[in-house]
Design a protein around this nucleic acid. Structure first.
Length: 154
DNA sequence: CGGGTTTGACCAGCGC
DNA sequence: GCGCTGGTCAAACCCG
């Protein structure tokens, strides 16, 4: 099977860091604040509604030959669009679980096609069906961070 | 038969 | 006010 390296990199639209980036660790952490700018629009929308405000948005940068990374959850593709600033189309996925409105965006880099940018939006409200070794560590960080931040679990 | 994927169309927001 | 881009939905199709 194809091996995918997780560059572990992340970015969040929240004040609190969803992950525990070790300072001075010199890891492959890649923070992409660009997404933050894009999420600004959503913030406004959510703000108008006065609901949960912004959504959790985490960006993973993985290095693999395949776009779809098995993180243990079931995803249903609901759209695909070719962005102007990209050579490859962006795929939109949703969690199949009932009540779990977690979205996932996957886009390949125009320069390095082997680099896949996976954007997670929202949090899962159900346990993982299966365990993905590569993603287990990430998921673990996710869940841990979420619990630490004591996010409202619906 | 069920679930998932696909593709096109539609819509909303933002910029100009 | 119009056009563009990005995002979502929905119907049809395909696969297991």
């Amino acid at each position: 099977m194809e091996k995918h390296e997780v560059l572990l990199p992340i970015s969040s639209s929240l004040d609190a860091s969803p992950f525990e980036p070790n300072p001075g660790s010199g890891s492959n952490v890649h923070v992409q604040n660009e997404e933050f700018l894009k999420s600004k629009r959503k913030e406004t929308l959510s703000e108008r509604s006065g609901k949960e405000t912004m959504k959790h948005k985490y960006v993973f940068q993985t290095r693999s030959q395949i776009d779809i990374l098995d993180d243990g959850f079931r995803w249903r593709k609901y759209g695909e669009k070719l962005v102007k600033n990209g050579k490859f189309p962006r795929s939109y996925y949703k969690c199949s679980y009932r009540g779990c409105n977690v979205r996932k965006q996957i886009q390949r880099h125009s320069k390095d096609e082997q680099i896949v940018e996976t954007t997670y939006e929202g949090m899962h409200v159900h346990p993982v069906e299966k365990t993905a070794e590569s993603f287990d560590q990430i998921l673990r960080s996710f869940i841990t961070s979420n619990q630490l931040n004591n996010v409202t679990p619906i």
